[in-house]
Design a protein around this nucleic acid. Structure first.
Length: 105
DNA sequence: TCTTTGACGATAA
DNA sequence: GTTATCGCCAAAG
């Protein structure tokens, strides 16, 4: 048996949820981590998204950190979110009060 | 194998 | 609002 890459199965779950994020809304790493049963692994969610293209293409631009800040070094993310109608506080922060995905819709 | 790093989170001051 | 510190866990060096 090959190494039990937790990340592989973990990634599938993360990406599965990321797909469900509606346009114009954003989710936090911690929120996604909690959804899949790994509330402590928010950083792993981020790691997966950073390699999301390895698994396929997903709307990873709809995922931000708990502060609503977009991924550093990826100014393009803000542009994509804006195109979907997401509310921004400034160039590097999303307004979670309006755009956070509550799943209750 | 050990140490450092990271698209993080929470709390304290 | 910012800065500091701790916790958490896997990948990379």
């Amino acid at each position: 048996m090959s190494r039990t890459r937790l990340n592989d199965d973990f990634a599938r779950q993360v990406l599965s949820v990321v797909e469900k994020i509606p346009a114009g809304s954003v989710a936090t790493y911690g929120q996604l981590a909690c959804m899949i049963g790994r509330p402590k692994n928010a950083r792993l969610v981020a790691r997966v998204l950073s390699h999301a293209e390895y698994y396929g293409h997903f709307p990873c631009h709809r995922v931000v950190n708990h502060a609503g800040r977009i991924a550093p070094g990826w100014s393009e993310q803000a542009d994509l979110l804006r195109a979907e109608g997401a509310a921004f506080k400034n160039e590097t922060h999303v307004d979670l009060r309006q755009s956070l995905w509550l799943r209750a819709d």
